[in-house]
């Protein structure tokens, strides 16, 4: 269901007319209430956020590692702070975790720590993958299969990858006791059994707790708006939104693909405060899409559930699967995910 070129102008028109509707349709009570609402802001979540800026990646990051992160599907988890985690002990952790995984894989057999095992675990830091100086350094954990033949040692196959990070988390985490390291966001790629194993080890060793990070439709629409707002040199993919219609027994999916430039144009017509995205703008943006769709297909998309957002920046599914496509906005995407993870562990 690609939107045609005319869609953009109609959408723009709708935007203005809707704004008028809002003003005309209000009863005196509603108006007074609106004014009250403006005074009253008791929302714990920030009603406005910054548009992800261009690359805020610090210079010292490894382009190879960044490239490695992009274009992979990651499953999101939130993580409580790690107790007594130390960046100087990464080698030790590699050894212990390798032994743990080996032990779990051949349960019942005695395993000597550090002895030759079929898998190998590596810990390494991802330098510069953070928003401020106070953020904890990101680090990467990989499980590699070890070939039994020494000659083929060079070619190690990556079985599983997971990484921990915290981007602009410091403003939200004001009080973290000294012995704790906060990396609230965990992204995993690979077999779920391995994720579970690593999770168990981390839980045992650092007294932390993993929980899957699902992204509800409310936050998805935020992502849709924020990522549409991102300036791109070239668009790699269409902006596509996927809705799930809650009808039993089988669910029905509606896919809504828009040309990214049209989406950007719509956003620009909605967007007022430079550099920031507000709740009202997000709502208005989505409402415009809804009303456009309703005009053509007589379906109220607002009654359905947004389950996936994919743009040139990233593609994310409501069950916590994300694929980041654009290097430029990596930090911005991670910052928002960190925020969500922190809200979940709070």
């Amino acid at each position: 269901m690609d939107s045609d070129d005319t869609a953009e102008s109609t959408l723009r028109h709708r935007t203005s007319s809707r704004l008028q509707d809002c003003c005309i349709g209000a009863t005196p009570l509603q108006k007074r209430i609106e004014s009250v609402r403006k005074q009253v802001s008791f929302v714990p979540t920030p009603p406005r956020r910054k548009i992800p800026q261009c690359s805020q990646l610090q210079e010292d990051n490894d382009p190879q590692k960044v490239a490695f992160i992009l274009h992979k599907q990651w499953t999101l988890y939130s993580l409580t702070p790690l107790y007594k985690f130390s960046y100087t002990n990464l080698k030790e952790y590699s050894r212990l975790l390798s032994a743990f995984i080996a032990a779990e894989k051949q349960k019942g057999l005695a395993v000597e720590v550090g002895e030759d095992v079929s898998v190998k675990v590596t810990f390494s830091t991802l330098l510069g993958m953070k928003g401020t100086q106070r953020d904890s350094e990101a680090f990467l954990v990989q499980i590699l299969s070890k070939s039994q033949l020494p000659s083929e040692n060079r070619e190690q196959k990556v079985l599983w990858t997971g990484w921990f990070c915290c981007v602009f988390g410091d403003s939200l985490l004001e009080t973290i006791p000294e012995d704790f390291t906060c990396v609230p966001l965990f992204l995993a790629n690979g077999a779920e059994t391995n994720t579970a194993l690593v999770g168990t080890w981390f839980q045992k060793t650092f007294d932390c707790h993993f929980s899957p990070l699902a992204i509800n439709a409310f936050n998805l629409s935020w992502m849709a708006a924020m990522w549409t707002a991102c300036k791109m040199d070239q668009y790699m993919a269409a902006t596509e939104l996927l809705w799930s219609v809650p009808c039993s027994p089988q669910s029905l999916d509606i896919s809504y693909a828009i040309h990214p430039e049209d989406a950007k144009a719509l956003w620009d017509s909605v967007h007022k405060t430079p550099g920031e995205v507000t709740q009202e703008e997000v709502d208005l943006f989505m409402d415009c899409l809804y009303s456009h769709f309703h005009r053509h297909f007589k379906i109220h998309l607002s009654a359905t559930r947004l389950v996936r957002v994919s743009t040139s920046v990233a593609s994310v599914h409501t069950d916590g699967k994300i694929k980041i496509l654009c290097h430029k906005y990596l930090i911005g995407v991670l910052a928002y995910l960190t925020e969500l993870a922190i809200f979940q562990i709070d």
Binding site: N216, F218, R305
Partner: peptide, 10 residues
Amino acid sequence: RESHCSVHRN
């Protein structure tokens, strides 16, 4: 069902 929510509780 938090993950299904389109409307924020607030």
